[in-house]
Computed example of a mutant assay.
Amino acid sequence: MSYSVGQVSGFAGITVRTLHHYDTSGLLSPSDRSPAGYRLYSDADLARLQQILFYRELGFPLDEIATILEDPPPATAGRYPQANALDHLRARHRLLNDQISKLRRLVEVAEHAMEVQQTGVELTPEERFEVFGEVTFDLTYATQAHLKWQHREGHQRSMARAAAHSKEDWATIMTEAADWRLRLTAAFDAGEPADGERAMDLAEEHRQHITRWFTPCPTDMHTRIADDFTTDPRAFALAVPPTAQRPGLAPYLRTAVHANAVRQAPGSGG
């Protein structure tokens, strides 16, 4: 059965102009012509077109597709055409994986840039790295929080205060946080109970740190923050970077925060 250029164009979802180009380049010449001289494609032509479109989808240039679809050159005598195609596909597979890896890295860089911009912190890239260190590289949780709570007055106030901090302020904030993390992990490593005085004092210190530098943090708000520590690794990473974490530390801090909230409740004597 034969098919016209228009029919093949409709079947394949490509333009008539593309089919004409394939013909003039020798990549896909129709097997027959009508009495009026119009191109007519056979079933075998359609099968070849399907192969061409497959390789085009993988990003192969037309000249390389032509090479793949040809019989092996003399230097590869004795090999099957499929083996020649497989060599090209393996090379393309490696190239695509390399491109995917590069694109993933670019996506991460773009995400990090957007995340840092969401904090409103007016620092140069060098200053950001100097002040934040590894914390700079996982602020997706902070970004999502901003998008979720951006219309809340408390969040807007927190972001405004963050934007107003100087480089020196941020250096102080990060130094305080690093010192607090050291004492938190020391208490955890020493086996101090999560609902004991030492752990609750550390939880209260964390709450006061948020209040002092960002926004008033009542105990109910603090417990909601701590709940995220056990459900979202990114949330906990803002308090304790991955290099300083230990298995069980997130629920330990959550328990301490909840115990401290009970201790701070009116009439509790805390």
Rank of each mutant, 00 (worst) to 15 (best):
T15A: 10
M159Y: 10
Y141W: 08
G120P: 06
S34F: 01
L238V: 03
L249D: 05
S101R: 15
E126P: 04
L62Y: 03
R152Y: 10
I65R: 04
S34Y: 02
H258N: 06
R104E: 11
V262T: 10
Y141I: 04
R79S: 06
P125S: 14
R152W: 13
T18C: 09
R90N: 14
G26I: 00
R198S: 04
F229C: 03
Y38D: 11
T140S: 15
D63N: 14
R224L: 01
H165T: 08
G59H: 11
A75Y: 11
L49Y: 06
A162I: 09
L184H: 08
L53Y: 07
D220H: 13
L123P: 02
P61L: 03
I210A: 05
R212N: 03
P81G: 05
R104D: 10
A85K: 03
F132D: 06
S31T: 14
R48G: 00
E134V: 11
R94G: 08
D23Q: 04
N84S: 12
S42A: 08
S158K: 15
L139A: 05
T185C: 07
D71N: 14
E204I: 05
P242R: 08
M200Y: 04
P241R: 04
A187Y: 06
T230F: 01
G10L: 10
P218S: 08
G37F: 02
A142V: 13
L103W: 10
W180S: 00
L28D: 01
F188P: 05
A110L: 10
S25N: 02
Y141S: 10
L49G: 08
A199M: 03
F214D: 02
A44G: 04
A75C: 10
D87K: 01
W180M: 02
A226F: 04
P193A: 05
L139R: 12
S2R: 12
I225S: 04
D43N: 10
P61M: 07
R105P: 04
A237L: 01
V135A: 11
S268G: 06
F11K: 10
L103V: 15
Q82E: 15
F11P: 02
N260T: 06
V116N: 12
A75K: 15
T136G: 10
F137M: 07
H20F: 11
A177S: 12
T67M: 09
R79I: 01
R207D: 00
T76V: 13
T119Y: 06
L58W: 14
H93E: 13
A261W: 00
A226C: 08
S268M: 09
R33L: 10
S25H: 00
P233R: 03
S25E: 01
P266C: 01
D71R: 15
R246K: 07
T172S: 12
P73W: 06
Q82R: 11
P266G: 05
K167L: 10
R181Y: 03
V16M: 13
S34C: 07
A164P: 05
S34Q: 07
D220N: 13
R198M: 05
Q264S: 12
T24W: 00
H155T: 14
I225G: 01
H206F: 00
Q245C: 07
G6C: 07
N97Y: 11
G78M: 11
E204S: 07
V109N: 14
P242E: 03
S9D: 09
T76M: 15
Q50L: 11
S25L: 03
G154V: 15
